[in-house]
Each structure stands twice: as structure tokens, then as C-alpha cells.
Design a protein around this nucleic acid. Structure first.
Length: 275
DNA sequence: ATAAGGCCCTGACCGC
DNA sequence: TGCGGTCAGGGCCTTA
């Protein structure tokens, strides 16, 4: 699943491929992919736009045009953005194609069709409900503690709430809780300030390491949820300590990793290391 | 304000 | 081999 590290990798790697390029034509073959405006208006409005800025907010990509408009892209579960040569035909899962002035094409491919694209004058309306960026100065221990105080929901569920901290998804929630030694089913309000301090640091360390390794790509036996714009996989999956390691030995204590469901999401943890 | 459940989608996987 | 059923999962929506 593309989460913060994967989206960050996308933005970094798309910049040299798209900076200064102009969109000269566009096609939309699954209209629901375009959240705003409608697909017909999108095609009309995107043609002629030139890419100038490349940013990220939570799991949203913010691709800014010279006009001031922003192309906001959320990959959800299986979305990909590939820069392809002109002779690469879009496959059946490619729902939006933007032709560039250098002959290449930007393909938005998404087998589950959950991903969304907005073309809007300002990204503010789309991202305003997000909590702080976990790697930015706005993510403080005290602010984090205030947001989870008195909450009865599990800390795992709260980490997935994008209004508490932006960009953490299922992989990095599980990995962060393991790194902090905290049981995922604990109620948010039951965690001590010391535990929240550990978790806060763990979230940042895990995300930074995952960005260093260009994110997590899942194995070939499963849906290929994430590949970089170049089609290469990331490297952090080799450092997963609990995520999708059900039944395997914990790297710290050798106890088998367990899987439970919290907030309708599969959750992986070591019952011996996470209390 | 918070919590819980449904919805969108389709490839992979399972049992028969 | 084929078929039907189940699962995963981010964010948003509705309902309690």
C-alpha cells in the first residue's frame, strides 16, 4: 500500500521526470478516477498545463502547475503513476493517460480503482482535515498526546486516523508499534506519556528509514501494490519486523508473530515484545 | 465528539 | 479446469 514513504518516493522521483513538462493531450477511461472536476472538464483543463512543483501532504501527492492549479493524486491501495515511453500501450488497468511535450506519457494505473485525482486551484480543500506531518515540526509529543488522550479506540486504529497524524497506514502503524514495544490493541487513552514519547519517536524513525529505502513493495505472490515511477521496487519490505510475518519468528525474541483484526484492519505484532 | 459499520473494486486464493 | 465465495484495505459516508 502506498503510504507516506511510498508517496514521498513518488514525488522525489517524478520531479526530474516531469519538471517543466507540458501536458499536450489527455484521456480518461474510468471517469470515477477523477474526483474534481468531472472527467470531460478534467481533460479540457489539464491540457496545456506545465509541471512546476512537487510536494506531498500525508498520502496525497501535490503536483503543481505553472498556472497555479494543483494536480492532487491519491493512490489509495493499488494506484501507480508511471512515466512511459510513447510506444508503451496503456494496459487494462490504466485509467488516465497524460501525454507530455517530450513524447512520453504519464499513466495512472490502478487495478482496484480506489485511487483519485483532483485538478483544483488549491489543494487546501482536499488536505485541510489532515493532522500534522509526522516528519515535520508540527508533530510534537504533547500534541500527539492531546489527540489520543481519553480515546477508547485502540492505538492501532488511532494511528490510521489521518486527522491525528498524516500519512501512516497499515504497514507503518504495525511497524511503529513494534518498534515502540506497545501492544496495538491498547486503548489510546491508556498509554502513558512515556509510551507516547516512545511511539512518537518510533513513527519518525520507521518512516525515515522507509523513505531511505524507497518504501515497501510486497512480494510477487500478492498483488503488486507499489512500484516506483521507474517500475523498480522499494527496499523496506526486507526490514519489516511484523507486517505480514504472521507465524514467523519475532526478530527480537523468536516468539511467533500474531495477527489480529483491529478497526477492520489486519494487525501484526509480537505478543512477547509488545505489552 | 466518538465509534462502528458499509461502500467502492478486483486479483488472489481457497474449497469442492 | 472451473466455479463460487471470501478477503484485503484508505478514506469517506451514514448511522448509532
Amino acid at each position: 500500500m502506498p503510504e507516506l514513504p511510498e508517496v514521498e518516493t513518488y514525488v522525489r522521483e517524478l520531479e526530474p521526470l516531469l519538471l517543466g513538462r507540458q501536458v499536450v493531450a489527455a484521456q480518461v477511461t474510468w471517469p470515477r478516477t477523477i474526483a474534481t472536476p468531472d472527467a470531460v472538464a478534467f481533460v479540457h483543463a489539464v491540457v496545456g498545463q506545465r509541471f512546476t512543483t512537487f510536494d506531498r501532504r500525508g498520502k496525497y501527492m501535490l503536483l503543481g502547475f505553472a498556472s497555479g492549479d494543483t494536480l492532487v493524486v491519491h493512490l489509495r491501495m493499488t494506484g501507480h503513476l508511471y512515466v512511459q515511453a510513447a510506444d508503451v500501450a496503456p494496459d487494462k488497468h490504466t485509467h488516465v493517460v497524460m501525454e507530455l511535450d517530450d513524447g512520453r506519457r504519464l499513466h495512472f494505473q490502478d487495478s482496484r480503482k480506489f485511487g483519485r485525482i483532483w485538478l483544483i486551484p488549491s489543494s487546501e480543500g482536499v488536505v485541510q482535515k489532515l493532522g500534522p506531518e509526522p516528519l515535520g515540526p508540527g508533530f510534537t509529543v504533547t500534541g500527539f498526546a492531546e489527540r489520543v488522550a481519553r480515546r477508547k479506540a485502540s492505538i492501532k486504529t488511532l494511528l490510521l486516523d489521518q486527522s491525528i497524524v498524516a500519512g501512516v497506514g497499515n504497514i507503518y502503524a504495525d511497524e511503529s508499534l513494534f518498534a515502540a514495544g506497545i501492544h496495538p490493541a491498547r486503548a489510546g487513552g491508556d498509554l502513558s506519556y512515556e509510551e507516547l514519547t516512545r511511539l512518537h519517536a518510533a513513527i519518525r524513525a520507521v518512516l525515515q528509514r522507509a523513505i531511505q529505502l524507497n518504501g515497501s513493495s510486497l512480494g510477487s505472490s500478492r498483488v503488486q501494490n507499489y512500484l516506483r515511477p521507474t517500475g523498480e521496487p522499494g527496499g523496506f519490505q526486507d526490514e519489516h519486523k511484523v507486517y505480514q510475518r504472521t507465524g514467523q519468528a519475532c526478530v527480537q525474541c523468536a516468539h511467533p508473530i500474531e495477527r489480529i483484526v483491529l478497526g477492520q484492519r489486519s494487525t501484526h505484532f509480537c505478543p512477547q515484545c509488545q505489552k
